[in-house]
Each structure stands twice: as C-alpha cells, then as structure tokens.
Amino acid sequence: MTDSANMVLMVATVLFALGLVGVLTRKNVVFMLISVEVMLNAAGMAFIAAGSKWQQPDGQVMFLFILAMAAAEVSVGLALVLQIYHQHKTMDVEDLKELKD
C-alpha cells in the first residue's frame, strides 16, 4: 500500500480540496486567485502520478500545458484585480455586482 499510485492521488485530492475550501470561504480576490493556483497545481500532480505509473511522458506533457494555462490565467486575473481595485477601491467580491439585475 505504501508505494501505490493511490497515495499520490490522495495527496493531490487533499490539496485540491484545500484549494476548493479557499475559493469558497475567502472574499478577497487575491486569496481566491491563490486558491485557484493551488487547485491547478493539484490537478497537475494527478497527471504526473498517472504518467509515472504508466511510465509514459504524456503526463508530463499535460503538466506543461497546465503550467502555461495557469501562467496565462494568473496574468489576466491579476490585471483584472488591479482594474477592480482602481475602479471600486475594494477587494471584496461581494461589492462587484454591476452585472446583477
């Protein structure tokens, strides 16, 4: 049991759940982005575990794509955070309700 791939998947699941708790409980936009990063990292770890179990390079290739996607996402997200702070002077997501009816 000690070295099975399920242990790696378990660690990835726990990290993903922690990131999900962070997204659900925080109200600050910066902390929510940090939690999204944690979740993406955990998903990448599951890919690495699968690639290591089947000894194929495809898992690492998928992790590279997740990495590039996370970099693009965090750059756009942080630009949005800057713009939100300049327009509303707050970081609270509950104050952003222009799109509400």
Binding site: D3, S4, N6, V8, S52, Q56
Partner: peptide, 17 residues
C-alpha cells in the same frame, strides 16, 4: 478517498521518465 481505496492496489514502480 473511499473511491481511491476500494480498488486494487499494486505497488507502483517508479522509473524516471
């Protein structure tokens, strides 16, 4: 976790890719 630990568990050989 229940889903992960009900299946068969074989030891994973770690080989460097």
């Amino acid at each position: 976790l229940l889903l992960l630990f009900t299946g068969s568990q074989q030891v994973m050989q770690v080989s460097q890719v």
